[in-house]
Design a protein around this nucleic acid. Structure first.
Lengths: 242, 242
DNA sequence: GCTTGTCTTGCGGGTTCCCGCAAATTTTGC
DNA sequence: GCAAAATTTGCGGGAACCCGCAAGACAAGC
């Protein structure tokens, strides 16, 4: 059995290395990669079936790496090991996990035992292991209670990228007015209608920009989500007028 | 001699602990705090003069903690130890460092030796030690070449928060038109004027939102900068109509 | 003093955004 | 299959935004 570790922090990497060896005595070889790009290469080369993946990395983040890896071999087992349970990460991960794949999501703040248990469950038993905190986020996110539908999330990302209504309409195959409807919906949910001043009509927020700001502060979107979205946008633009 | 470590990651904390003991044999006591709030309390209680501070922490980030600590005792020596050299961080730090204070900024990717050297230089010799990468960022940022003036940065933060032109005008004591002038300036520098489509006039970006997006992607602003700015905004709103 | 350059302000207009209203269309529930 | 509910679309208008133009304000340099 082989395990591939993709993690940019040297301390965390060696900690993981030890944890893997301790939790999985049947493991013969531990590979290490210091970013997503190298991780992808190693995974391809060694046909890795067991991967521990950090999310926040500089070269190429964990979600992108996992996506291409899963695209090539959907039965790869991946344990995501991250500092945070941002909704942006949770949503990003659950968007790319293939049908029936075994994966896990545990926080770096978890105890040694939790980590080791997760390693065994996922790699040996092919079970999914999601940390409680992450699980909670997932339900809040995907459930309808105060959660955002995919439609709403899409449009949020589009205005965060700085697209005009007209452009969004084209991208989503909608009319201008429908885009604006969805925006209203979004503004409602993000609670951006409160006045910032108090003197009558003036002094409102700019709804569009404020929505993005609030989404950032609620960690609905974050740097890596924006980065991915920008890449997708450019791809789409490339296809549109090759 | 006492040293206070403020760092939320346990692995990094114990690594720092060892590094401090190794680099500073004259150190008798090492205190540890796991976030900015606790760090502030310990610093006040022990009148700490030597602090190693992480920037990215959940409860209260390093910049805020450092600001209040320096406000109380401006001769405190602080070594910032961070994963990234985001322009937002660099600017945030240099905005709060008091006149003539000794401080440092080294990246977590730096070698053991660099870290230990920095510890001695700052704590024993009261010298400022700024990592090369950070230094480069600082010059690019503060120098006029492709750098942003304080004025431009202020208005960038304001639109990132989602304020309207009118509100920004009030906050900065400017006319509406002047605010818009500065916005034009900003758009120019951030290069948001390129069309996204190609068919004639349509398909532009929404300049305002796009500016925020590219600022984020260039790490001119990041989550923690936004968070701080939001706090300052609320404070200002509170003062305005007590 | 005068000039020059930068910054600010007002005016005016074209464009985009935000949204109420109502009709058309699709989806859902039974 | 049909009625209710949700979504989409068009129209129209008020507000905000973006910006060219030109006149004042202010500081710096000679």
């Amino acid at each position: 059995m082989e395990v591939l570790i993709v993690e940019d922090d040297p301390l965390h990497r060696s900690y993981l290395h030890d944890a893997v060896l301790a939790a999985l005595p049947e493991c013969e070889l531990v590979l290490e990669a210091e970013n997503g790009r190298i991780g992808e290469g190693l995974a391809r080369q060694h046909r890795s079936a067991h991967i521990v993946m950090d999310l926040q990395m500089s070269e190429r983040n964990g979600i992108e790496a996992a996506r291409t890896i899963w695209k090539e071999r959907p039965d790869t087992r991946i344990l995501f090991w991250s500092n945070y349970a941002d909704e942006a990460y949770v949503r990003g991960v659950s968007r790319i996990v293939p049908e029936g794949a075994a994966y896990g999501y545990v926080l770096k703040s978890a105890s040694d035992d939790r980590l080791k248990l997760a390693l065994r469950s996922i790699f040996m038993e092919s079970q999914c292991v999601i940390d409680r905190e992450v699980r909670g986020m997932q339900q809040k996110s995907l459930g309808n209670i105060n959660g955002f539908t995919d439609v709403e999330y899409e449009i949020l990302v589009d205005i965060a990228l700085g697209l005009t209504d007209r452009m969004i309409a084209r991208r989503q195959n909608l009319s201008l007015r429908s885009v604006q409807n969805r925006l209203q919906q979004l503004y409602e949910k993000l609670n951006v209608y409160q006045r910032v001043g108090e003197e009558g009509d003036e002094g409102r927020y700019n709804l569009r920009s404020r929505a993005v700001a609030v989404a950032f502060m609620r960690k609905l979107i974050n740097y890596s989500a924006l980065e991915r979205a920008e890449a997708e946008l450019n791809e789409w633009l490339g296809i549109r007028h090759n």
